[in-house]
Amino acid sequence: MVRFSKATTAWLLLTPMMTIIIGVVGYPLIKTVYYSFTAAHLASPATTDCWVGFKNYLKALGNSKFLDSIENTAYFVSVSVSAEIIIGVLVALLLNQAFKGRTLLRALLILPLALPTVVNAMMWRLIYGPDFGALNALLTQIGLLAEYQSWLGDPDLALWMVAIADIWKNFPLVALITLAALQTISKDLIEAATLDGANAWQRFWTVVFPAIIAPVSVALVLRTIEAFKVFDIIYVMTRGGPANSTKTVSFHVYQEAFAYMRIGSGASYALIVVLISALLIATYLWLIKKQGDTA
């Protein structure tokens, strides 16, 4: 019987997984990097080998539409993620209290999170419908609107409306993470703070907040990374319109590479997005390490 060292055995066990990762992730990534330095175009296969160097990257950094898509993405992330954190924490604090029906509400909290993003986007697009949408019907019946509003057709409102749909779907993730952290807080600490004369606000800042800050920080970074890559909800609800007011970086990459078939420049846009995402991931890892050091 052939005996292998522990290191050799480990590498042999990792080989199938490494092979799949290299084939599924590594090879496409290398091809994307290669294409980003060429003038590759889907309609002209001969352009695949047309080397242009850093021209695509310089063009991307000087493209006002691409820079606008980054601005739209940053705006979407700031609005969506901040609202998800605030609502998620408040809902978690509510569901941590003892009241009748709490278990049912906790179960219902999972439903928006379990809903596929495309289904969620279609549902909210129907709600926002300018002719028969439920939101217009509700607001006109209670007197807040005189006439129906085209929520997704107004450049000043469209991104906000998409953000609301995203918030509704993803705030339960923050709520569940926060609720799990709240469950670890000893009731003795709360009772001791109460006996010391601390009111509800003081108990929150001195006992509850220190216990949930680390999990909420992780949820913040995770949601920031996901929100920065937003594509599907934009594609279904607005297709980047009206007037590019909801075009995000991921949607811009999709248009450049597949709608306009400019694979070379689309690859350069995609790699710029990857670099920005890598910075967000590095922040996430730093927070995890910091949490482990302080634990």
Rank of each mutant, 00 (worst) to 15 (best):
L285I: 13
W286G: 10
K289E: 10
V274Q: 00
G264M: 06
I281G: 13
I263Y: 11
K290R: 10
A267M: 03
A295P: 02
K289D: 11
A270R: 00
A282T: 08
D293N: 15
S268K: 05
A282W: 06
R262C: 01
I288K: 09
L279F: 13
K290V: 01
I281L: 13
A278K: 01
A282V: 05
W286C: 09
L280S: 04
G292D: 13
S265N: 14
A267F: 02
I276Q: 13
Y260M: 08
T294I: 14
T283E: 03
S268I: 00
S265E: 15
I276H: 10
K290Y: 04
L275V: 11
A282E: 05
Q291V: 07
Y284C: 07
T294Q: 15
Y269Q: 04
L271T: 03
Y284E: 11
I288C: 12
L275E: 03
A278M: 10
Q291A: 12
I263H: 03
G266M: 08
I272A: 07
I263L: 15
I263D: 05
I276M: 14
S277W: 04
I288F: 07
I272V: 03
L279M: 14
G264P: 02
G266L: 09
Q291I: 12
V274P: 00
A295D: 12
L285E: 14
L287M: 11
G292C: 08
V273Q: 12
I272H: 04
Q291M: 12
T283F: 05
A270C: 01
A270M: 01
G266R: 06
L280K: 01
S265G: 12
L280D: 02
R262T: 00
K289T: 05
G292Q: 15
Y269C: 01
V273F: 03
I288W: 07
M261W: 03
L280A: 05
S265D: 14
I272W: 03
Y269N: 02
A295L: 15
L271K: 04
V274Y: 04
D293M: 15
I263W: 05
W286N: 10
I276E: 09
T283P: 00
S277T: 14
S268H: 02
A270K: 00
K290I: 00
G264C: 06
K289Q: 12
G264N: 06
I272F: 02
I272L: 13
Y260W: 08
Y260N: 13
A278I: 05
I263A: 14
S277D: 12
D293W: 10
L280V: 00
W286A: 14
L279P: 11
M261L: 06
Y260A: 14
Y260R: 09
T283A: 12
Q291L: 09
I263P: 02
A270W: 02
I288P: 08
A267I: 01
G292N: 15
L271I: 15
M261Q: 05
L287S: 06
Q291H: 05
D293P: 05
A278R: 02
S265Y: 15
Q291R: 10
I276D: 10
Y284S: 06
V273R: 02
